[in-house]
């Protein structure tokens, strides 16, 4: 399934680019994820607990960052597998400066397999978008907590 969308982050582009590739930030922002553990260059081990309605699944997998093109784009690949199936998200994130932050546009695909594919297809689109939105919401919270400001890199 193809996915695409855009979210605005309230920090300048270079900062946004760094935050989006910071494993600590990613780990905290990804829904259901505790922490990312580095296992290679731009490659992290991920454990994710997905809770959606009554569904409850543990996924074990990897987060990878590829095709990095500082500070304008990179590819984020998230793969996980568990008892209820497996999922794979692959998105190209493109960053563009805005007056008060950065526009992050994503374009990619979500694939699922196993039981979640067989019973979840009607919900895949809407729940993927929800999870992506939660990711960016959490990221914003992280940014606010860290004291980053949209205009911090700009003259007041």
């Amino acid at each position: 399934m193809k996915i695409s969308g855009a979210h605005v982050i309230s920090v300048p582009q270079e900062r946004a680019y760094a935050l989006l590739q910071d494993p600590a930030v990613l780990g905290r922002s990804m829904p259901g994820c505790d922490a990312l553990e580095k296992i290679g260059e731009n490659e992290y081990h991920m454990k994710m607990k997905m809770v959606l309605a009554s569904m409850n699944g543990l996924f074990d997998g990897k987060v990878r960052i590829t095709d990095a093109n500082p500070f304008s784009s990179f590819r984020l690949i998230v793969e996980g597998a568990g008892k209820i199936g497996f999922m794979r998200g692959n998105g190209l994130l493109t960053l563009a400066p805005l007056e008060n932050g950065t526009n992050v546009q994503y374009e990619g695909s979500v694939e699922v397999g196993g039981t979640i594919a067989a019973v979840g297809q009607r919900l895949l689109d809407t729940t993927s978008r929800m999870l992506i939105k939660r990711f960016f919401d959490k990221l914003s919270t992280e940014i606010a907590a860290s004291g980053d400001k949209a205009g911090s890199a700009l003259p007041a």
Partner: peptide, 14 residues
């Protein structure tokens, strides 16, 4: 009506 089928498929495991 929703929980039981999810449990039977083991998508839900409360």
């Amino acid at each position: 009506m929703s929980l039981i089928p999810m449990m039977k498929l083991r998508l839900a495991a409360p």
